[in-house]
Structures are given as structure tokens and as C-alpha cells.
Amino acid sequence: MNAIETEGLTRYYGDLCAVDNLNLSVDNEIFALLGPNGSGKTTTVLMLTTLLAPTKGRASVCGHDVQREGEKVRRALSYVPQDMAVDIKLTGRENVRFFADLYGVPHAADRVDEALAVMELTDRADDLIRTYSGGMRRRLELAQALVHEPSVLFLDEPTIGLDVAARKRIWEHIRALRRKGMTVFVTTHYMDEADQFCDRVGIISQGRIAALGTPAELKARLMKDVITARVEGPFTPPEVDGVAFVGRSGDEVSFTAGNGREALPLLADALKNNGCVVRSMALREPTLDDVFLQAVGRQEEPQGFAFDKFRIMLRRRK
């Protein structure tokens, strides 16, 4: 049994298809749903957390159907939405205790202390949230979400609006949860974070999965490494295994290679043997950004901005 399973999951807002026939299985990993704004990430999470009914298809969390067994699903998961919602007039401890009470956690006081300690908030636990930084508020939300030890954690844009250090810290915490066996489902549009911290990513565009796999797989599948070199003298394209010549512009020549790091010295030798002087070489690995752009295409809105549909969508989302 996978922690999260969807089968033909579909959601329409009016005649706008926000999520289109989504099939996913996620288990015991950090799974990131990547996509541009309005691609259906949040809608998917809302359906999986029982906050929105699917139009078609089904989904289950820990073996419980999201539509028929809502309460069991909600018992198994925790959800941290995108907008940071913590009570600023309450202390950190009170905020977490509130959630412990709502979950009906036994030995609530101890569990609250534990959750605060895991998120490194013990020192500030009795301060009002008003005095917390953005990163601390996010960690407090994670502490709220962890207080009942869920099997599945849903995080909608967990690092949005945070500075670099705070982001890194949040991700380290997420990694630690994953090591303890929790399944983490995140949505984000920060490619570098997904690349660095997630086990598997699904790129979603217009409600459909455009690419699915580990970041390394996706990068390997969709693109090769890019090598550029500045050369002087007579140039003839060298024959090196696994390297393809792409083109020349001025004194710059470019190649693609399956494994750029290994191809780099071979290519340098081959160029020298062919009689040209190599001034500089650069190797660029494809990033998830490249994969994303290749999978999704440039995000130009083809038929202008559909205000009506957008309004319907906003109204439903509130």
C-alpha cells in the first residue's frame, strides 16, 4: 500500500480543467510537485487533503479513500498550506498545544515539548508569535503539523518568502522527517530546491504530469551536459565518443556530451591534436530548470489571459 495513490484524479472549475487525469503513487520519499503558477499543484494538494472534492477519479492516503473516508485520511496526514497562518497573539507553545488538543493527542504537554524541540523552538516556545521571524513561523507550523506524528505530510510551497538560510533549515528538517519514515509531499516552484532535496519530482503543467522521476533521471533523460570552448587556429570538429558537435559562433564552439566531466579532458586533447589552441572550456550541467523548460515549454499564455476563468478559480480557492 502506497502512502499516496491517485487514479485518474481530475478537477474542473467550471469548464477550466485544473487537474487532468492525474495518476501518481508516492511512498516513503520526499515527492515534489513542480509547476508554474496555476498549473494545478495546490488543487491536487487540496483534493488529497480532503479539502476539495475531485470531479472525477479517486485518490487515497494510507489506503483510505479521500472522499469516503475523510476522517481517517485526516487522521493520517498533516497539511501546511501556503499562507502562513499562526496566531500571532499566542505563544509558540500555545499554538502547538492548540493543534495537539484538536488531534486529541495523548500526553499532549510532552508531545508539544517534543515537537517544539524537533523544530528547535524550545528557547522561544513561550514568546508570542508576533516576535517570531518568518522562518521561525514556518518551523512552528511544522511543529503543529508534527505534533500527532502523521504518516504523510503535505507542504504547499514550504519555503516561499523565506531567506536562503531559513529555506535551507526548513529543508534539513524535512529531510530529517523523511529519514524517520514519513512520506512528504511538497509543491514548489523553486527548481533548485527540488533538485537538491527531493527524492522524486513530478513536473505538472496545465493539470497534467509532463515529467516524472528522480531529479538525476529527469536531467539525464531530457538533456545532456553542455560543453563550450573558446578556440583559436584552424578548427575541425574532433571525433570523441559520446560527444556531439553542436555548432560554432565566432571563436566559441559548443558540444553536448552524455557525461560532461569525463568528456572534458578527452575533448581538450582531441582539439589540441587537431591543431587548435584551446583558450578556455566551460561545462554546464543541465539544471532542473532546463528539464522544466523542455517539459513545460516557455510559459507564454497562448490565447491571452482568461479573466473569467481566473476569477472562477480564485473564488473556488479561497
Partner: peptide, 15 residues
């Protein structure tokens, strides 16, 4: 609570 996003958190709770 709804506008500020609290409600979404509450609705995802088992209570």
C-alpha cells in the same frame, strides 16, 4: 479565519 488561511488548516484536521 477563512481569509487568513486558518480555516484550511482546521478543515484538514480529524476533529
Amino acid at each position: 479565519d477563512k481569509i487568513l488561511g486558518f480555516l484550511n488548516k482546521f478543515l484538514a484536521l480529524p476533529a
